[in-house]
């Protein structure tokens, strides 16, 4: 058994596609029309055969209050790893990304938390022994 896909619940798939590709830098892996929505996944260009991230519509009525409660408390929906978090933070700030948490050391990791503009907070971490 392998984990081939994981998902974030996004308010708007087109907006999410723009943010996760143009801003974060992921590449589209699958974009398959499925009625009103799409099976839309992205991968890291550093690992194109790796686990896909599904940009899943957050249309279920329970999704909105769940997402809003996480955002209110600053809790990330998911987490991505980078090699140099301070330069990634500077790069994303220059692209207009807003952060709820600036670079902070927490035990073995250095982390930030950003707003994906689709109703989620996303954590980026750097393993400090890198």
């Amino acid at each position: 058994m392998r984990i081939y896909v994981t998902s974030v619940l996004v308010d708007d798939q087109s907006k999410a596609l723009d943010f996760y590709t143009r801003v974060l830098g992921f590449k589209v892996k699958h974009d398959i029309p499925m009625g009103e929505h799409r099976w839309l996944t992205v991968v890291s260009p550093e690992n194109p055969e790796g686990t896909e991230l599904l940009l899943e519509p957050s249309e279920h009525p329970a999704a909105k209050p769940f997402k809003a409660a996480l955002v209110e408390d600053g809790i990330p929906a998911t987490s991505f790893q980078v090699d140099d978090i301070d330069s990634e933070y500077e790069r994303l700030v220059s692209l207009g990304v807003s952060f709820t948490q600036k670079p902070m050391d927490a035990g073995p990791v250095r982390m930030v938390v950003l707003d994906d503009t689709c109703g989620n907070l996303i954590q980026l971490i750097q393993m400090k022994d890198n």
Binding site: D73, I75, A106
Partner: peptide, 11 residues
């Protein structure tokens, strides 16, 4: 944020 306060405590 609350998340940050909790993370700092844990760290």
């Amino acid at each position: 944020s609350l998340f940050e306060i909790c993370a700092l405590f844990f760290a």
